[in-house]
Design a protein around this nucleic acid. Sequence first.
DNA 1: ATAATTTGGTTTATAACATAAACCGCTTTA
DNA 2: TAAAGCGGTTTATGTTATAAACCAAATTAT
Lengths: 103, 103
Amino acid sequence: MEEKQKTFKPLDPLLHSELRLAVMSILIGVDEADFVYIKSQTGATAGNLSVQIDKLSAAWYIEVEKTFRGKKTCTICRITDKGRNAFAEYVETLKQYLQIPKG
Amino acid sequence: MEEKQKTFKPLDPLLHSELRLAVMSILIGVDEADFVYIKSQTGATAGNLSVQIDKLSAAWYIEVEKTFRGKKTCTICRITDKGRNAFAEYVETLKQYLQIPKG
DNA sequence: ATAATTTGGTTTATAACATAAACCGCTTTA
DNA sequence: TAAAGCGGTTTATGTTATAAACCAAATTAT
């Protein structure tokens, strides 16, 4: 009978990270974006970005394609349906914490 | 001449924490709340809550008053103006990440 | 040619953080 | 008066974020 009175839904820990959230925020608005572009938009270091992209990719929130632009390697990222849904749910959950009405 | 193109404002690390944010979210809506109430609303363990309240208090985002309710100790928390401002700014900053229009 | 620099990343070492477990003093109950 | 419960705090540990170090390929300078 332990009524826990849980008012706050837990926040998806994969998205509750400044850099990963910024990456998702970028990807949700475009068809695709490459590593260099994301790096410039977020101001992140390459190492940090590499790690965080790996994590999002391991969870299938994004998919990563390695190709070439001319002779240079190019890492292209796209958000997946799973990622889109997770992002949307994260936003709704967070609204509760931020006192923003749902919708 | 290194144009960094910083699109994303940094998120206040003190507020970008699930439990601390929940605590602030509670306190912003009430005059005051005690430890036991906050614990029940958040579902946090006492240890975790104690630590996070200390951090918010050390930054003067909240103020903590230790009194008695009858013979039992009672830890009362209130948000400060500094905390209120920090929370408001955090919300506005986060809206950018979440693609929610300002306001 | 080849040495030095830059580009586009990955790997790894470390610092910061969140969390639970263990603990403590006081109070209530058995 | 022993045992259990309440209201917390302290500390130990696992997780996470982050930067530093590194690497291969490409470009630029000598």
